[in-house]
């Protein structure tokens, strides 16, 4: 059986180190740097011939630089005769551009899938894809892991009144996700949808469901500028919710997100560490992090050993 080699891209060194620690491995030696003309250069610092290579790189921050770095690392390992290259992409870049929602719009997530395949990836491990159908953009195996078990565990351990909570989707598209969590907690759900009363009138948010005297937990797969979840929080409080939490897998938090969260009435905004959050936590005390490194580590271990990964879909490794 080939040995496992774990490399980290520069997007999320902390997560890579945590994964390596869980697996009892050292991170592989790799030097990534930029030339003066801003081109990315990658040098793999150890032999990968015949090895099972895993490259951890999240789609965040300088997203195009990180994507190119990942592609170059994959290709470097491929042409250095590794037996298999698996890209571990906790937050898949361009995942929201997954369909033609306007005329002449590109399906950029499909383009990224093609780029990864062309670079030489044999397998993808990712988490909470914006749409599961993105797996079908690839001709190689894709393991889409779920943060849901870790989220459920966090709710039970950190929200004392969780039995009196209601799970809320900030838009109609997330209804399926919230009902899955509500069912597992055996609580009710609600959703917020946009409604236009007259043509040319600004959208107003309508709450469908009863949140009065309950702890409301907003759940979504990602939060970017946080406009939607902050409006949703106001709506829930005005409808009688006692407290409002937001739980999101991917905390992108771009633009005015941090100031919006600081000004909003959240008890906490809980995200996983698929994207680094250290800087944002310094500026916003409401942000809390669920560590999902053990899920990624266990997926890597199982993939390497040829074990079933599907067990992780409903369980959290200790």
């Amino acid at each position: 059986m080939p040995n496992i080699v774990l490399f980290s891209g520069s997007s999320h060194q902390d997560l890579s180190q945590r994964v390596a620690d869980r697996l009892g491995l050292e991170l592989g030696k790799v030097v990534t740097k930029k030339f003066s003309n801003q081109e990315t250069s990658v040098e793999i610092g150890e032999s990968v011939r015949g090895e099972d290579v895993y490259i951890i790189q999240s789609g965040c921050g300088e997203i195009n630089d990180n994507l190119m770095e990942l592609l170059i690392m994959i290709n470097a390992c491929k042409i250095a005769s590794s037996s298999r290259v698996t890209a571990v992409i906790p937050c898949f870049p361009y995942a929201r551009q997954d369909k033609k929602d306007k005329s002449r719009a590109p399906i950029s997530a499909k383009l990224v899938a093609n780029m990864l395949s062309v670079a030489g990836a044999d397998h993808i491990i990712t988490m909470d894809l914006h749409a599961s159908q993105i797996q079908g953009f690839f001709d190689i195996p894709v393991d889409n892991l779920y943060a849901e078990p870790a989220v459920l565990q966090w709710i039970r351990e950190n929200i004392t009144e969780w039995r009196n909570c209601i799970i809320v989707s900030p838009d109609a598209g997330g209804a399926k996700r919230v009902t899955s969590i509500a069912d597992r907690l055996n609580v009710e759900f609600a959703l917020i949808h946009k409604e236009r009363k007259k043509a040319n009138e600004v959208d107003r948010m309508v709450l469908v469901g009863d949140v009065k005297d309950r702890v409301a937990i907003l759940v979504d797969d990602m939060a970017d500028t946080c406009g939607t979840i902050c409006h949703a929080a106001d709506k829930l409080l005005s409808a009688g919710a006692t407290k409002v939490y937001a739980i999101l897998t991917h905390g992108i938090f771009s633009g005015p997100a941090i100031s919006r969260i600081n000004n909003a009435a959240f008890e906490a905004v809980v995200v996983t560490n698929t994207i680094p959050q250290e800087d944002k936590m310094k500026h916003c005390s409401k942000i809390q992090v669920i560590d999902i490194s053990m899920i990624l580590a266990e997926a890597i271990r199982r993939t390497h050993n040829g074990e079933s990964v599907s067990y992780l879909f409903s369980h959290v490794p200790l």
Partner: peptide
């Protein structure tokens, strides 16, 4: 395994 299999509690 790479290191002993992690125990996984049932949810």
């Amino acid at each position: 395994a790479i290191h002993p299999s992690l125990e996984i509690p049932m949810l």
